[in-house]
Design a protein around this nucleic acid. Structure first.
Lengths: 152, 152
DNA sequence: TCCCCATTCATACTAAAGTATGATTTCGCT
DNA sequence: AGCGAAATCATACTTTAGTATGAATGGGGA
């Protein structure tokens, strides 16, 4: 957060200096207001675009994905349950990701390869996951996570 | 896509007009270059920010929201499916029993205790089970067995 | 009867999983 | 500016899982 303000500030400062330089050079040459204005406009448009990109970077786009729910299955509120359980357990998104791969039957090494991290990282995550789920083994974790609707 | 360019073009045109107006008004008042430059800078910064937001707005975080679609569940014949798969794989009843306990998250030792046999026996069974299911790990076995409707 | 096969047990080994601990980095929040 | 959470990596260790191999028993079918 700080960095952005600093960078933006520096950009503004540079622009201000440029402004001064342009003024000195162009004041001597009369009737060059158009050129001056054009250059100014271009510079600040670029600055603005940069700033705009920076501050617009947090928009979230919702994509609705249709998922079949069989009506003679027990009625569920999948995501509410999901979110509640997630909050309650304090499981992070990375941990959830690993949990899903675990449920698919992948070994720690395979998960590590798939996520481009070391097996140590996976082990750390799984250990924390087991604490949060209050289980001792990955099979238990999968079973419990399924029961809690954390995973499909 | 077209709309944005059109809008941006119109904005530029408006800005150009403003530029001209400012020039005519300020040319009369000498030495107002600073004011002129400042106003110009402000305007084009705003324009730039707007443009920046527009064109940067697409690379953002995608959040998938799953929307349930209710469908009638296909009628099932649980036991027939079960038996077919059992025959095909050649899994014995003892092995199936162990598979279920495995799916419940129990360790080999716990299964052995529950069934009053040694852990060696469980290991033998699980090894054979993995061969018959063509898997390498117990988590895979559970996942595959679930897919084959061998277990709940 | 004899053989097949499911079940059981065992030893010895390799591989994977899980625990404990600590360090680093990045990011958001206050 | 500092703090805490999340994510990463690492070392060292213990435990559990899984493989290979061999063997004993007992029931049911050719």
């Amino acid at each position: 957060m700080n960095k952005r303000f600093i960078i933006y500030g520096i950009l503004l400062a540079v622009a201000a200096v440029l402004l001064q330089v342009l003024q000195y050079k162009l004041v001597l040459v009369n009737h060059s207001l158009e050129l001056y204005g054009g250059i100014l406009a271009a510079i600040f448009t670029l600055v603005g675009i940069t700033a705009g990109k920076r501050f617009a970077g947090k928009k979230e786009i919702l994509i609705e994905k249709q998922v079949p729910v069989y009506i003679n299955a027990p009625a569920r509120h999948p995501f509410e349950l999901n979110d509640k359980a997630l909050e309650k357990t304090g499981i992070s998104k990375r941990e959830l990701e690993i949990l899903e791969l675990m449920a698919a039957g992948m070994s720690n090494q395979e998960i590590a390869d798939k996520l481009f991290v070391s097996i140590h990282t996976i082990k750390t995550h799984t250990s924390n996951l087991f604490l949060k789920l209050d289980v001792k083994r990955r099979t238990q974790a999968v079973t419990k996570a399924r029961a809690l609707q954390l995973i499909a």
